[in-house]
Amino acid sequence: MSDFPSVDFFRVLQRRMNDNSDKFRALGFTDSRAVFAVRADDELEDDRYFGAVFEVYDCTEICELEASEVEAYDPDWILEADCADWREMIANIRAEGAADSDHTLNRLSLLGHPFRIHGVDQTRVDVFHRQQLSYQEFFDQAAEG
């Protein structure tokens, strides 16, 4: 699977989500605009941002954004962490076949560290909570292959 962080990594998740429509259909409608923010740290020189659009049961768009483009992308929610924390989560998913108890999106973001879930409008951020099974399953697609 493609290295993280890269637009190819997220496109693989997108393709796997769209190829597994029965699984995502069973979880319910999934509709949001998201940004995955990867913060620079010892493992990454500059911050990177990836936009995603989810519609019905699919991920219909993946793109890389400049920092200056994030606001205009109008995300409902932004999931943000240092690169090392993203990589740890993905490595755990690959090793376990799905996120284990310590690496679920909610577990990682509840206290605001190591991940942070935020946005300009709390009701739009709440979409992340309302549809969380789908977003967890989206990232758990990193385990395949």
């Binding site: 709440d126 909570h129 309302r130 549809q131 969380q132 099974l133 967890q136």
Partner: peptide, 10 residues
């Protein structure tokens, strides 16, 4: 808890 929190957020 993931399922009930989805409902509650609605």
């Amino acid at each position: 808890f993931r399922r009930v929190l989805q409902d509650e957020a609605r």
